[in-house]
Amino acid sequence: MPILKPDELDIISISAEQTRRMGIRLGKLLSPGDVVCLSGDMGAGKTVFAAGIGQGWGTTHQVTSPTFNLVHAHRRQADHVIFYHLDCYRLERPSDADSIGLDDILDGDGVVVFEWPERIQPVLPKHRLWITFRVLDETRRNLIFQGNSPRYVDLITQFRESTYGV
């Protein structure tokens, strides 16, 4: 098996700051309609990464944790496209997703980032970029990017190129 699989990228971040920078890189590459799932335990870096995505993508507001409100919608100045940032931790079952208006969010042309996506796995869009965060030690995190459609494989390729130049 080749070490560089096109649909997967396995990287280690040595700090929260680096995790954030990775998010910024990804945020710059996202297009309307893209879906990104951030999976990992509390404290694994999901919100830090999402804040980076928002920054790279161009939100004007500081991207903060959506845990309290479940959904944050940030509108980008340039083209008014919305960046939706969802936290599904408190959703007990997939049907709860209705209550936060998930259908409307996914029908729109915004960028959608999920934290705790596994909570609503059955109702997630079939195609998505899935990033798994694992805690290695106090500051280091393992990030595994997986794409399951040509769009997301392409996104991983672009991300790899912007990070490593290859």
């Binding site: 509390m42 919100t47 804040a51 500081q62 903060t64 944790s65 845990t67 309290f68």
Partner: peptide, 18 residues
């Protein structure tokens, strides 16, 4: 200034959950 991530009350809630 303001919070860059969790609100103070949210930190209380999350640690309460832990």
């Amino acid at each position: 200034g303001g919070t860059l991530d969790d609100a103070a009350g949210e930190a209380f809630d999350k640690v309460g959950r832990l």
